[in-house]
Design a protein around this nucleic acid. Structure first.
Lengths: 118, 118
DNA sequence: TAAATATATGAACAATTATTCAAATGTTCA
DNA sequence: TGAACATTTGAATAATTGTTCATATATTTA
């Protein structure tokens, strides 16, 4: 991934900032991880699941019922949420209860909601 | 989009919560908007652009230089960012300067960063 | 006006992704 | 053990998306 650099004229802020920016920018890997995290929030089914779990831990089947979706679709999405450590689960017999993993989730969704309501 | 509802047994929290959840859940439209907002954060090029703009307003060409990407790719992404009101711009001659639209962006990216660093 | 520069846009392609369907795994209980 | 239930998983499909390339629109200046 090596792109051609087209240089713009020096009356822009180019020379001032470009070097600084390259130094303070988080690493490619972190930027990628960050994008991957937000990707998880970028699907309304997953957001619904998170909203459901705001209220209480819940089993897959009840989440599916609440959202009027198939249990398979929910299970697939819970897997994604779990991989990104947004939810955790505990097993009780045949039932698996999912719950929110931490507080960043509430903050992030809250800030997002504020933004779209402005 | 009408799915079959498979009911699970009553020993689950089903009957207690499903109705409440359906009432307190934000509307389909808002959930969709929210997902669409996070979608914008879900690409590392766009995140890079936002990080660049943390420091200062900047023209398209300089952003492209900073990120070693083509002006066209950046312009396409700036359009997406603008549509979601994450950046604003002002024109000065042939040059267009972009800057962050508000503070939610910093908070959201900050919380996201905290989450992945844990 | 013509040439040069900065940005925007449309079409096309490759890559990614959400859901469905079918089947597998694991658990309870008769 | 076998039937019923809760969940997970894999493959397939349709839809979405980021970048490139070519071109268009402004704007400045010679």
């Amino acid at each position: 991934m090596d792109y051609e650099i087209e240089r713009c004229e020096d009356n822009h802020q180019h020379t001032k900032f470009v070097e600084q920016i390259r130094q303070t920018m988080p690493s490619e890997e972190r930027l990628y991880d960050l994008a991957e995290l937000f990707q998880v929030f970028s699907d309304s089914t997953r957001i619904k699941i998170l909203f459901v779990l705001f209220r209480s831990e819940m089993c897959v089947c009840d989440i599916a019922n609440s959202l009027n979706m198939t249990q398979s679709a929910i299970s697939h999405q819970l897997r994604v949420l779990k991989q990104m450590r947004l939810v955790k689960n505990r097993k009780e017999g045949k039932t698996v209860f999912y719950s929110l993993a931490d507080d960043h989730i509430v903050t992030i969704l809250g800030q997002g909601m504020e933004h779209i309501l402005e």
